[in-house]
Design a protein around this nucleic acid. Sequence first.
DNA 1: TCAGATAAAATCGCGC
DNA 2: GCGCGATTTTATCTGA
Lengths: 86, 86, 86, 86
Amino acid sequence: MGYVFMDSSAVNASHLRAFIERIEKLEEEKRAIADDIKDVYSEAKGTGFDVKIIRKIVSLRRMDRDKRREEEEILDLYLSALGMAD
Amino acid sequence: MGYVFMDSSAVNASHLRAFIERIEKLEEEKRAIADDIKDVYSEAKGTGFDVKIIRKIVSLRRMDRDKRREEEEILDLYLSALGMAD
Amino acid sequence: MGYVFMDSSAVNASHLRAFIERIEKLEEEKRAIADDIKDVYSEAKGTGFDVKIIRKIVSLRRMDRDKRREEEEILDLYLSALGMAD
Amino acid sequence: MGYVFMDSSAVNASHLRAFIERIEKLEEEKRAIADDIKDVYSEAKGTGFDVKIIRKIVSLRRMDRDKRREEEEILDLYLSALGMAD
DNA sequence: TCAGATAAAATCGCGC
DNA sequence: GCGCGATTTTATCTGA
């Protein structure tokens, strides 16, 4: 703000503003990517694919990934419980 | 309400009240079951089981069920797309 | 399991299985009630009510109840402190 | 795939695969940004800010933006109706 | 444009 | 008290 001496409210306000700007910038980027995803679905649809099926495939592949990760986590839990954790 | 002739606001209010009471009753039941679930976890913990592991097992089994259901759904989608739906 | 003598792992496994089954049964019941609640909202909607508003009413009433309960608890604390608890 | 002559199924499969990969890549990026946002909130919290309040501010500012944009759109409509659109 | 489904954000509640 | 997972509420999207 150009002032050398600022009371703590001003510092706070300035910090707060910075946080908010970073968040809003990131949210804007996120929204842009969401739009890109929508575009890809549209393009796929325009090429004759069934969007519903593609969504389901993507969803199933995500579930596979999630399940695999959860299985690794529970393995770690088991090993910990057995005192064999790395 | 005991009145034979009610204007539509009264009818509305009465209906609204009935809906709200049904919802609140159901939510109370739901809360009671959530408490029961908590009790089972506590009991398991008291028997020496690791709650975290049980939660993970329950979660994995739920994922299995979900995945199986999604796979059936996508199969239906494929069959529909091929004009072979039942 | 039909065996008279089981080692502790088997006992453990059997207990664990029982806990998991109880939890899953309760979770299923909870889910069923959640569905019922959704149905009531749908029915209300079909009767011309605004679901969003009903949700808000239910939420406000829940807050009121919680507030009242908390006030009663504070009153109990006061009474206890005064040696006048029931 | 290295083949000059592919039947249409292979072409389809290849196209489908490409769409799915693009979607998954974008979803991964989106998730990464969501994580970044969470990190900023955490950082703000660590600096002593109330996350709930920051969320509310961000939300209000978003509403303002939407409202402003909507008002501009309405203004454009008016101008169009008057044959004064840019 | 609306309902119904899907996904995201915010909130709640638990265990550590 | 804080992260983390579950739940709930809100917003978005798609197909009719």
